[in-house]
Write a protein that binds this DNA or RNA. Structure first.
Lengths: 212, 212
DNA sequence: TACGCTAACGAACGATCGTTAGGCACTGTC
DNA sequence: GACAGTGCCTAACGATCGTTCGTTAGCGTA
């Protein structure tokens, strides 16, 4: 209640968004179970009971955090993998936008990744289904590329999952105070993914040192 | 070393190992904070108080789980990245063994990744330092390859971290009942990593669709 | 027989958990 | 000026948390 905002108003809408934002930061730092309602309340500057005027339960806050951060990106970008139109260029573009988007939403993404099991079963399943459709779209798109002869990937499924691991992993190590902007890192990953990871003829067993 | 027992005796060595094994499974499934001492005790078939004869605290169990699963692998394999002797072959071998080892120890690895912050500060720092040395060894090795002309990676640091994300991500999607053995997946990743991801001349911006 | 050790027990400790009940101050509407 | 709604409060609920207590049964050794 610092500023009921006649004009300017740094926080739009109010408490609910504030709680979501603060709780997501706390959950990302100390995990969902590691943060109590009292901790959230005191970080917001409010009594624990007051939170229940905005959310019906603690899990409801988690719902609001995870809600559609991931799904929104997927829904908005699946078209780039459409089997009928997918190209190396559209793949590169998707990788780039994926990396940038996931970094921009890194807090919610981290919570969504780590605390998926704490979500209500229905919503967790919904998120999982959404991710699965994204995965499948990648696999299918790579398969198209292989069939079309312009992607020499050896195993489309393994390649897709490796690619997704690679670009989802950026958030785990990237730091903004380093020498590279996230956009640069994103473009490097697009290059590594499409030209390198997927775009290499699979001359197998040339000199690979078989393990005993 | 599975069974030093003279006869019968279904459990080798004893309770301590049994508790570690059961607790790590529970922690991996429901998280460290999501599993109480009572749940561990009842899974072991013992009263909660009895666990304190084997461990001084709950965090002590976590210590025993994470202990040196990761570090043992790193310490045993760093030689493969020795700047003086590293080759594409040794890199391929390391990727393969990394994937297989991490899958075989997937439960402890999952707990170690997810619950690192729950560890005592000293031990957490030790684990982090160990991982960091592995990372740095990869970066350095790739740099050697680039200088030597046999690895055309664009940015050694980014490439190394992308590579590690890729191979660390396998555990998140691989399932044993699929069509591929973990060894096959491991070798595919070795191929993708060394031949594809790292081994591609960096013709940049050929036709990449710059984002607005 | 007496001692010490290990491994386990049932019961309880204080703290913290998510949540709820009931009330107070303010706001805009009729 | 009465009324409903909103936002927040204090206080407390029952449950569960990690942990500690005192005790005991069994075993090997002096």
């Amino acid at each position: 209640m610092i500023d009921p905002e006649p004009a300017g108003a740094s926080e739009a809408g109010g408490r609910r968004e504030e709680i979501v934002e603060i709780a997501s930061r706390l959950f990302a730092e100390r995990s969902y179970r590691g943060v109590g309602m009292r901790a959230i309340a005191s970080a917001v500057g409010v009594q624990p009971a007051s939170i229940y005027h905005h959310f019906s339960s603690k899990a409801d806050i988690l719902d609001a955090i995870i809600a559609d951060v991931t799904e929104r990106f997927i829904a908005a970008h699946l078209y780039l993998l459409d089997p009928k139109f997918v190209t190396a260029s559209s793949m590169r573009q998707l990788v780039t936008e994926h990396v940038v988007y996931f970094w921009q939403h890194r807090i919610a993404e981290a919570v969504g990744l780590r605390e998926l099991k704490e979500l209500s079963v229905a919503r967790a399943e919904h998120v999982r289904r959404s991710r699965r459709s994204y995965q499948d779209a990648w696999i299918c798109a790579i398969q198209v590329g292989v069939s079309g002869g312009w992607l020499p990937a050896q195993n489309p499924r393994v390649a897709a999952l490796a690619l997704l691991s690679m670009i989802n992993g950026v958030n785990a190590w990237y730091r903004e105070d380093g020498p590279l902007s996230i956009a640069e890192v994103a473009e490097m990953h697009a290059e590594m993914a499409v030209t390198g990871l997927l775009g290499r003829p699979s001359k197998r067993h040339v000199d690979s040192p078989r393990r005993g």
